[in-house]
Design a protein around this nucleic acid. Sequence first.
DNA 1: CCTCAGATATGCT
DNA 2: GCATATCTGAGGG
Length: 215
Amino acid sequence: MAPPEPLPAPLPVPPLPAAFFGRDTATVARELLGALLVRRVDGGWLAARVVETEAYLGAEDRASHAWGGRRTPRNAALYLAPGHAYVYFIYGMHFCLNVVANPDGRGGAVLFRAAEVLAGGERVREHRGLAGRPVGPGALLGGPGRLCQGLAVDRRFDGHPLADGDLRLLASGQSPATGVDVGPRVGIAYAGDAATWPLRFALRGHPEVSRPRVR
DNA sequence: CCTCAGATATGCT
DNA sequence: GCATATCTGAGGG
């Protein structure tokens, strides 16, 4: 595989400060729209802009892996300090990436559901098994499993701080997102009342947003 | 747009 | 032991 086209070094924007993540989970999820996820592979950096997130509130949220205060080997990272990654394996074949975000250790986290590639596109297509093929809107990093596969995120990042290392979350360097679509979360129909909570956030009308469409 | 099979780590009984 | 999961790709209309 060819090395990705490198980003300039040092990275052009700063990491998000730890205090950013120590706030209300839904607020963090909304404000993460536009942030940059960067991944170092073979000495170069892949970069993608976050366009869709979901908030999982923790103990009081039946859809959260921390519902009822659950602590298991799988979800241990949810109780690390805000700003750490929580990565888990799901449906027998996909990974999902979250960042711990809450003010009080209740296990709240934000799921990254979709992103838009900014750098290293060909390498990302290789990770997705789509090298040299045309990729339609939303088919590259549109979906939590696709996002992890494209950025080569797996269990090794579970419990990893996103302020440094080979997977980082950086400030957008742009003004906060204005047009935001809000809707119920995906894939949690079992969660009773919580299934209707408006905790899914996406940049309005963005083509990379995952299915089903928000709104 | 919609439905369904696929593959397996995980957590609960 | 067994049901289920913060999903995806393919196939049908």
